[in-house]
């Protein structure tokens, strides 16, 4: 989900930059040196995993996985996603420099929201882990699509129909992400529960 260069208006671009800078500052503050290295390698996995094409009907979709990143990194999702997007912008020209802020916010803010959503659900009912994973994956993409649509509409009202289509096109991705995130989370919980950081607060 990259909004391309040249589409958005100045107020949207600059608010995106401001929010991304704030989120990244919080994220960096929360990451210790050790966690920064981990975030770097997880950002690399996020980069690689988002290039995987998963069949859907006659075509294929590619995963966004901001839900998983959110669950694993919390606020660290901001610097991690910013990093992955910067590399994508420089190496593949998906997105670009001016939209870097907006694109980071579109993916990282839902990731942080899902981090807290996932924790609240699991702390409330530990047996809901898979369900909470599904919710995190689905909501992360839902919010990302919503924010991308809003960024388009706030830039120019004539994008309204295009924004709707973009949102609707992401419905199948939401369900697939939900399934993938749920499976990921329950796998990690069985194999290496420390990664989910659930034990700290409960």
């Amino acid at each position: 989900m990259h909004i391309s260069e040249g589409v958005l208006a100045a107020p949207v671009l600059f608010s995106g930059l401001a929010v991304a800078a704030a989120g990244t500052a919080i994220g960096l503050k929360k990451l210790s040196l050790e966690q920064t290295g981990r975030a770097g390698i997880l950002a690399a996995s996020f980069f690689v995993a988002s290039l995987i094409h998963i069949p859907f009907g006659p075509g294929s979709v590619h995963l966004i996985l901001n839900g998983v990143v959110g669950v694993l990194l919390g606020w660290g999702a901001f610097p991690a996603i910013l990093t992955a997007l910067t590399l994508q912008a420089v190496l593949f020209h998906y997105g670009g420099l001016t939209v870097l802020g907006v694109n980071t916010v579109i993916m990282a803010l839902p990731a942080v929201v899902c981090h807290y959503l996932f924790r609240a659900l699991v702390r409330h009912r530990p047996q809901w882990l898979t369900g909470a994973g599904f919710a995190a994956g689905l909501v992360a993409v839902l919010l990302a699509a919503l924010m991308a649509a809003l960024a388009l509409v706030f830039s120019d009202e004539s994008f309204l129909e295009a924004a709707w289509m973009l949102g609707v096109a992401h419905f199948p991705v939401m369900v697939i992400e939900g399934v993938v995130t749920a499976t990921c989370v329950s796998f990690l919980n069985r194999v290496h529960p420390a990664l989910l950081h659930l034990e700290k607060e409960s």
Partner: peptide, 10 residues
């Protein structure tokens, strides 16, 4: 794919 990705992250 989810197991594969989880393994990747792990």
């Amino acid at each position: 794919y989810a197991y594969l990705i989880a393994m990747l992250f792990l």
